[in-house]
Computed example of a mutant assay.
Amino acid sequence: MVAADLPIGDRIRHYRGGRRQDAVAGLVGITPDYLSQIGRNLKVPSLPILYAPPRRGRRCGLGAFLP
Rank of each mutant, 00 (worst) to 15 (best):
R55Y: 00
G61K: 00
I8K: 07
L42F: 13
A64S: 13
L27D: 07
A23N: 14
D10N: 10
Q37P: 00
N41G: 10
V28L: 07
A64C: 13
D22I: 03
L62V: 12
G26E: 08
S46A: 12
I49N: 08
I38V: 13
A23C: 10
G26S: 13
I49Y: 07
I8V: 15
Q21A: 03
P45G: 08
Q37M: 12
G57H: 02
P53W: 04
V44T: 15
G18R: 08
A23E: 15
I38L: 06
R59I: 00
V24N: 02
G63A: 13
D10V: 09
P7A: 13
S36V: 01
G57L: 06
L6M: 13
C60Q: 12
R20G: 05
R19P: 00
L27Y: 08
A64N: 14
P7W: 14
L42Y: 11
N41P: 05
G17D: 15
R58E: 02
L6K: 12
I30C: 13
G39R: 09
A23F: 08
I38Y: 09
I8G: 01
H14W: 10
R16I: 05
P48V: 08
S46E: 09
R40P: 04
R56E: 12
V24C: 00
Q37Y: 05
D10Q: 14
L62Q: 06
S36I: 04
R13Q: 09
Q21I: 04
G57N: 04
I49K: 06
G63S: 09
R16P: 00
I12L: 12
D22V: 03
Y15T: 11
R13M: 03
G57M: 11
S36P: 01
D22T: 06
A52Q: 15
T31E: 13
R58S: 06
H14Q: 14
I49M: 12
Q21N: 06
P45E: 11
Q37C: 07
T31A: 05
Q21Y: 01
P32T: 04
P53Q: 06
V44F: 11
R56A: 09
I38F: 02
S46D: 10
D22G: 00
G29E: 04
I8R: 08
R40F: 01
S46T: 14
P54Q: 14
R13S: 06
R55F: 01
Q21E: 05
I30A: 02
G9W: 05
A52Y: 08
P54H: 14
G57Y: 02
L27M: 12
L42Q: 15
Y15M: 07
G39K: 10
V44Q: 15
P32S: 05
L27I: 02
D22Y: 02
A52G: 15
V28Q: 07
G17H: 05
P45R: 07
G39D: 12
P53Y: 03
L47Q: 15
R13I: 04
T31M: 06
Y51F: 13
L62C: 09
